[in-house]
């Protein structure tokens, strides 16, 4: 069983939901990201998404766009991210998921990319601009490498597409909670429960909700009806607001981000107990 599947199983046995923070690698420095991930895990992260900064992130809103630009300006590269992942892997068992647009994978070479990811101890791969129609070649490489290729389902996905996504997905299904880009200001759509129920009818895989989780309240709501909650932009906003501090007092910024994550975790737990 993959590390991702194992983590969801363990959580399910404990009656808990997975909290999955997204970090933008190298924002604003690689050292900062490394410390941040280690502390996020201490603060309650069950899986971690390592975001690969990209020049043209079409599925992302302004927060992740700016974080990506900061990281790229700081000289982040894929090779450095693989090395970061390997260092993290040597210090923890938490599942690490790379989130990257397709072009960096294509340019690096699909085989070479997957083999480097495997060496670095990456457990899963999310490619937001790779729908099932285009995923066949990459999946033929990730499957034997035991890397879970994680697919996204959207509120606009038809039943037929959900079926297709469910058939290909491994690890979990990333359920996009709003019709929009990351960091959406909208409230979690009222139709989220029905949307999740629809996907649920096609798969037994864990369902994690992302896009638009921006407070303990939204995290709690999502956790009540899904198996996991993904949080990115609202976490990065706390780094963005404190950028001047990052250089001299990185711990202070990390602590603030982790305190926020812990507040989400607490809200998710409460909801769970309230639900029972």
């Amino acid at each position: 069983m993959s590390r991702i599947a194992q983590t969801f199983t363990n959580l399910r046995l404990k009656g808990q939901k997975a909290l999955i923070p997204y970090v933008s690698c190298g924002d604003p420095s690689l050292e900062f990201t490394e410390q941040l991930v280690l502390k996020l895990v201490e603060a309650g992260a069950d899986l971690v998404e390592l975001g690969v900064p990209y020049s043209d992130p079409v599925a992302d809103g302004p927060t992740i766009q700016k974080a990506s630009q900061r990281a790229l300006a700081g000289g982040i590269t894929l090779e450095k991210i693989f090395q970061l992942a390997a260092r993290l892997r040597s210090r923890m068992e938490t599942p690490l998921i790379l989130m990257t647009y397709y072009n960096p994978i294509y340019r690096f070479g699909l085989e070479r990319f997957v083999s480097r990811a495997q060496e670095a101890g990456i457990d899963g791969l999310i490619v937001p601009d790779l729908p099932p129609e285009e995923a066949r070649i990459l999946k033929q490489i990730t499957d034997p490498a035991e890397i879970d290729l994680i697919f996204l389902a959207a509120p606009t996905s038809t039943a037929e597409r959900m079926e297709k996504i469910a058939a290909l997905a491994r690890g979990f299904i990333y359920c996009v909670s709003v019709t929009g880009v990351t960091g959406s200001r909208e409230n979690i759509a009222s139709g989220l429960e029905a949307f999740l129920a629809q996907i649920r009818s096609h798969t037994d895989l864990p369902l994690a909700v992302g896009f638009g989780i921006k407070s303990p309240e939204t995290a709690g709501k999502a956790a009540a009806i899904a198996d996991g909650v993904i949080v990115g932009s609202s976490l990065i906003e706390r780094i963005e607001e404190n950028l001047p501090l990052v250089k001299d007092e990185p711990e202070r910024v990390i602590n603030e981000v982790c305190a926020y994550l812990a507040s989400l975790k607490k809200a998710m737990g409460n909801t769970h107990f309230a639900m029972n």
Binding site: V58, A59, Y102, P128, D129, L130, P131, E133, E134, F151, L152, A153, A154, P155, T156, S157, T158, R161, I165, V176, T179, G180
Partner: peptide
């Protein structure tokens, strides 16, 4: 039919695929 030789395709977020 979504390709010209090896070029083309539909590399977009799932949200857009139905459209």
């Amino acid at each position: 039919n979504s390709y010209f030789g090896e070029f083309g395709g539909q590399f977009v977020p799932e949200t857009l695929m139905p459209a």
